[in-house]
Design a protein around this nucleic acid. Sequence first.
RNA 1: GGCCCUAUCGUCCAGCGGUAAGGACAUCGGCCUCUCACGCCGAAAACCGGAGUUCGAUUCUCCGUAGGGUCACCA
Length: 488
Amino acid sequence: MTESTQVRTRIAPSPTGDPHVGTAYIALFNYVFTKKNRGKFILRIEDTDRTRARHDSEKAIMESLQWLGLNWDEGPEKGGPYGPYRQSERKEIYQEHAIKLLEKGEAYRCFCTPERLAELRKHNKGRGTGYDGKCRNISPEESQKKADAGEAFTLRLKMETQGESVFTDELRGQVTRPYSELDDQIILKSDGYPTYHLANVVDDHLMKITHVIRAEEWIPSTPKHVRLYEAFGWQQPKWIHMPLLRNKDKNKTKISKRKNPVSLIYYKEAGFLAPALVNFLALMGFNYGEDIEKFTVPEMVEKFSFEKVSLGGPVFDVDKLKWLNGLYIREMDEEKLLDSIQEIWLNREYFKQLIPHVQKRMNNLNDFIDKTHFFFTSSLDYKTKDGKRLVPKSRDPKEMVKLFNEIAGKIDGLESFSIANLEQMLRTLTEEKEWKIKEVFMPVRIAISGQKASPPLFESMHLLGKERLRARLREAANFVEKRPTYFR
RNA sequence: GGCCCUAUCGUCCAGCGGUAAGGACAUCGGCCUCUCACGCCGAAAACCGGAGUUCGAUUCUCCGUAGGGUCACCA
């Protein structure tokens, strides 16, 4: 196989939050397809949004992908022939390319203010941003003059105005979209950073990506990318859009942390094995054949073909994941299993953090287990005397469901997951609601520990960890929601 | 709302013009068993609707319908 035809794929996560199960899903299919074709799989960090990109997030994404065994051939830290692999380090490259388009007349400077654009958007009728092309006809001289005078501007790509855009999705065939739907896209922001569209296309080309395997949500903007390839005079890669993972709710909406744990860290901390999770993800859309559902990544590589991928949005149903995980656990040898169990929570370091909070509460060494068991169980039994306190007499079940979900939602908004911030958040919330302290703190205590007597609340929440804390609050909300009469 | 994508048991997948529509999870029943779990056996459970093409449509085409996605100086 020659250099020019070698398959090259990439996973391009944006480091703006916890490592997402959807990222792992797409990475898996990229990985498997690449291995099948003896190609190269690249990790590229898309951190052009300076207000949202976070370094710890980037690190967590890499660790999670490694945990799952989805290792990349080229990427940040690791390097490779087409680096750097972090978009924030490629700013000049995008600017050079954007200028090329400006010189070719494929792009132009837009001096419109964000305010004006917001105004236009209000009145748009299905035509993208509703941008009216005001700056498209400014003469190059005039444009240059304004720029030299220091006026802020963005760069926009000239889109076609007539006809329709057509591209081939390898899984669905031709996808067409009328050009009237697409207006001139901003490719360079006024801060000099590129938007996703520009950075993505430039990088994919420069990194010699042959197959763009990404989520279905990108289909509507693919015509923009195609236009960019045309404007540069480059050859397009193959387009492959995978279906979107869905929530288990009635409508099967795109998977979201509101309704489903989506962080890979959660799955690891909740005791799922990497091979089981990967296997489960593979089942979402891929059919191994011969009615076989349990298989390893190498086995999947062996059988893989995009013809075996179905397009209906698969519901991420943890029940089946649990069953699969059980299968993997049962086949582990005892030593390995023991190691794995100790690795997650039953380790000395974790116990050490627990000790200071329970020592005063212990009379007997065995009390340690009584006082801390909720740090280790995967789910709690609220059908107890204490459990009834999930809903205070002065509040009704609905209010509590809302409260628990609200808190779960706010956990992510914290600048950092610290004891002080947790306390601050709960106190503020209590004040906003004008509830009594005990109407909030006690139910939360029950929600996370199942008991009315527990180690200190905020410390416990912190020790539980962000992911399990959120899951537990959701669990409590579900319990109350399903059995409102239980609390009468 | 405009545009785009999708459509088989509750859920995940088979089926690629002729089948008693198959497997798995979950559910229910039974066996095993000191309990539970595992394991094994069994039950119940689906082709969104309407036209067209065809000798024959779950399968091909079109139209509905439904669900999803997307419409940012976010990715």
